[in-house]
Design a protein around this nucleic acid. Structure first.
Lengths: 341, 341
DNA sequence: CTGTTAGCGCATTCAA
DNA sequence: TTGAATGCGCTAACAG
């Protein structure tokens, strides 16, 4: 049988309360007795039953998700997943709240994070804007003992506990490999549409893309990135102009959102069926475009997985418990029209 | 606060024991009181705390994994994942045992399954061989009240509760889409290497592959599938002969195991760098081949995810609990050399 | 600094 | 057919 607190109390020759104090690193235990208890724990191979502990504590994990009030499909989807998690809250012993902040606004994000410090949630997940002030605010939360998980866009220089998102450098490289093979072997140009190069995930995708293109597909010229602010109208205007201006564009990498604009531009482009397209995020728009052959491949991050992972990680960190690395790795999903879920 | 059994006992005007009888559908309750309790349950929106219930019951879930004693990397990997789950058993309240059976042997599998009926495990997971006898044996288990999950290879005509594996038709289609774009636009031939067309997953992959090839890439001729029995030596011999015989092979789809043999044949092929290759399962062999450019893409199913999913599903079925569909969908992972994990 | 005791939400004897 | 009482493994007052 699995050893219980009673067993280690007996072996260590102390009471349950003392065992509990040692297990939960609470003060008021002499070094000698602590040692005895710890010895018993390790010789018996005791691992505490988290479910029972939570039951006894009546523990709930108050978690806060800080999300940008962006209205693109992906962010909506992410929020919907958080709301589903809220629906499961009673079962999972979580109490999740959502805080919305203006998109691409570091100051607002910082204010939101600082406001959380007093609420003392058991964990915070946020879609990071890449700015030094945000790093500092995240570090203040961690300093205050609140685990922080970055979601979708990382903040690697901060002290965040974990990143629940894809490897964006690899995503960019993958896009380049696909596009490089989809377009022909004759020299031509590749257009790139980003949202904003102020967010880290977009910058990283571009970097990975350019690296592989330069190395493996030197006959292809990667044009300067168009910054469409993830706004369909802007994307349509800028990309449309570029497609009109140059006749040698054989491929497009859309690494941000606003794909409705991309499709509009594409539909009125002269050589549209000879243009290979790789985009990000599987939404209603991109799925349909895949289906009719306007987009050739979509790189996707599973918002549901990211949210569930963030919750698992925050709970584990709050308990100081280990996690299963394999389960928390967020994959770069590649969808062609043939493997749509 | 979330309602507890006490609350519904109070509202229904009965004792805890009666509530428990109703909740667990045990006999010895009059229709009238049962109705009262059920009314209280639904008006209060009671959902029972599985963790507390398991604590009280001291419940463990005895689960059995029936795995083929195949020695290819993928099956080894799968078994390793089950062993990792065994290591987590105390925490997850599972007691997992592994039963090994000879590969591709329906009779042996049937005997193993029938032997389980008396052990009455809380659930069984198996890698199915596609044969009517196996279907019948699975149905006998289900009939006996034991939930069954098929792993990797499905048995859709059986009464299995769930399939933890990828959509193999979609995988084949995806392979065709990739290969069709990787090879040029000139007419040429595509070689196909299968393990055995007696297993359903291989058959389905081939079917999906052929369908897309015929529809979207009519200039490519798909050759008859080589059946390599997932054996490197056999694969090397048969594929090598085919590569020698025909000079017009521009691509290979390896939909089974035994990729060491494929690589050996490829290395001594005359036009090896003009042959595009799509294979299945990310192993040491295929990963290395991706890296050096001998293989262009690998379709993978995450063995760890499959095992964890099977366990979650079996536990949920044993409790009659619902599951999160999104979490249990096994993805077709597509790896290029750029997004290796 | 240490121990006693009650109770978290549920299941299960054992009586009535 | 029903109910009272006890315990699962752990935590947290409250005493000493």
């Amino acid at each position: 049988m699995k050893p219980t607190v009673h067993d280690i109390a007996a072996v260590a020759g102390v009471s349950l309360a003392t065992v509990d104090r040692v297990l939960n690193r609470r003060p008021g235990v002499s070094a000698r007795t602590r040692d005895k208890v710890e010895a018993a724990v390790s010789t018996l191979g005791f691992v505490r039953d988290v479910a029972a502990a939570n039951l006894a504590k009546g523990r709930v994990y108050p978690l806060t998700f800080v999300l940008p009030a962006n209205d693109n499909s992906f962010m909506r989807d992410l929020e919907a997943e958080v709301r589903e998690a809220i629906a499961r809250a009673p079962v999972e012993r979580t109490a999740i709240s959502i805080v919305k902040v203006p998109p691409f606004d570091a100051d607002a994000l910082v204010r939101a994070l600082d406001a959380l410090i007093d609420e003392k949630p058991a964990g915070v997940a946020l879609v990071a804007v890449d700015a030094p002030d945000v790093v500092a605010a995240v570090d203040r939360l961690v300093e205050a003992g609140i685990p922080v998980v970055t979601l979708v866009s990382d903040l690697p220089t901060s002290r965040r506990s974990h990143f629940a998102g894809i490897d964006n450098l690899a995503a960019g490289r993958t896009a380049a490999s696909l596009l490089g093979r989809f377009v022909g072997r004759e020299p031509s140009s590749i257009a790139v549409v980003a949202g904003s190069l102020l967010v880290r995930d977009h910058r990283e995708r571009l970097e990975g893309f350019r690296a592989v293109m330069a190395k493996d597909y030197p006959h292809l010229t990667v044009l300067d990135a168009i910054e469409g602010r993830d706004d369909p109208a802007v994307v349509e205007r800028l990309l449309g102009a570029e497609l009109d201006r140059r006749g040698d564009i054989s491929g497009i990498y859309s690494l941000g959102a606003g794909n409705r604009g991309l499709l509009a531009a594409l539909r009125s482009a002269p050589r549209r069926d000879r243009i290979a397209v790789v985009a990000h995020e599987l939404t209603g728009t991109t799925r349909e475009a895949l289906d009719v052959g306007l987009i050739d491949a979509v790189l996707n991050q599973d918002a549901g997985h990211e949210v569930r992972s963030a919750i698992r990680v925050l709970k584990a960190k709050a308990d100081g418990a280990p996690l299963l690395a394999g389960q928390e790795r967020i994959r770069i999903d590649i969808f062609l029209k043939d493997n749509l879920p």
